[in-house]
Write a protein that binds this DNA or RNA. Structure first.
Length: 296
DNA sequence: CTCGATCCCTGGACGC
DNA sequence: TGCGTCCAGGGATCGA
């Protein structure tokens, strides 16, 4: 499941592999995950990819203007979200298309940039000018770029549960279920804790934990749980270092207590019930008890 | 404002 | 062996 480190890994691979290549033609398969398939067919051919970078969980393939463009349209880009099972990689045109190959862009070096996605939970869109700007503005701060000040403001200015906040792409862009759970475990914060109720010191711990984990995961080329593969078809290694995610019933690496799983924000959330203390009033009651304990 | 529920989609795990 | 069922999960959407 591609989150920030996995998408970063793919972006770096694509940046190395296809920067400078011109798109010759585009062939589409199923298009229900594409915002504007007809524009993709019309706008991509003839443009070169001049940069590939990550934006949250999106890959941003920045495109040059068309050679015969009559009017400037501003920046143009292909946005690609890998969803759960998406993969974007250049392959030799002669290679048979894998099952679930839905977009094929022939490049000017004879290779094909292919988008393969069994579940089609991903998303693809061609955007330019203002609509590109508007789209990018919808997302929150990149957790690796945000300073402690901004991180704190975004987490504390919110009454939702910390797990929900970490997953909310309008708060932070790029964090998904795995790295949310891993950073909460590291910072010893219960996933149901309210963001606004976290102490300053806890927020700082979380900030450091999240950045450290994301950076380390990028070095290890991401986590391969089910089928994540990078541009070269290689799995990541970070799944070997998970401390909470997917470890229900297994001993906590710190205290040996069995890792528990609860649903928060509609997602499985793994945590250590000993290290990550439940917020007062807990999950089971859900009643509206507050104040008094307001004192941070 | 925040929540849960529901839908999208397919493959893998599991039970019988 | 083969079926049915459940589950995974990011994100949009809707109603509470």
């Amino acid at each position: 499941m591609p989150e920030l480190p996995e998408v970063e890994t793919v972006a770096r691979g694509l940046q190395r592999e296809i920067t400078g290549r011109r798109i010759v033609s585009v062939t589409l398969g199923k298009t229900d995950f594409i915002d504007n398939p007809e524009e993709i067919e019309k706008e991509l051919p003839g443009r070169a990819i001049h940069e590939v970078r990550r934006y949250g969980k999106f890959l941003l393939l920045r495109l040059t203007p068309k050679r015969d463009a009559a009017v400037a349209e501003g920046d143009a880009a292909l946005l690609v979200h890998l969803g759960m099972t998406g993969m974007l990689a250049p392959q030799a045109a002669g290679e048979p298309h894998a099952k679930h190959t839905h977009v094929v862009a022939l490049l000017d070096d004879g290779r094909e940039l292919r988008y393969i996605d069994a579940r089609r939970f991903g998303r693809m869109a061609y955007l330019a000018g203002e609509s590109l700007k508007e789209e990018l503005k919808r997302f929150g701060a990149d957790p690796l770029e945000a300073g402690l000040e901004e991180f704190t403001a975004r987490i504390c200015g919110n009454r939702a549960r910390i797990k929900a906040l970490l997953l909310d792409q309008q708060v932070l862009r790029g964090v998904g279920n795995i790295y949310a759970d891993e950073s909460l475990w590291k910072a010893k914060i219960h996933p149901m804790q309210l963001g606004a109720k976290l102490r300053r010191e806890q927020v700082k711990e979380l900030y450091r934990a999240l950045q450290g984990i994301l950076e380390r995961a990028i070095v290890m080329r991401g986590s391969s749980i089910a089928d994540f593969l990078d541009v070269e078809g290689q799995p990541g290694e970070y799944q070997r270092h998970h401390r909470a995610y997917g470890r229900e019933g297994k001993p906590c690496f710190r205290c040996k207590t069995r890792i528990k799983r609860v649903i928060v924000a509609g997602r499985s959330s793994y945590f250590c019930p000993q290290c990550q203390k439940a917020p007062r009033g807990g999950k089971r009651q859900g009643r509206r008890q507050q104040e008094m304990g307001k004192g941070v």
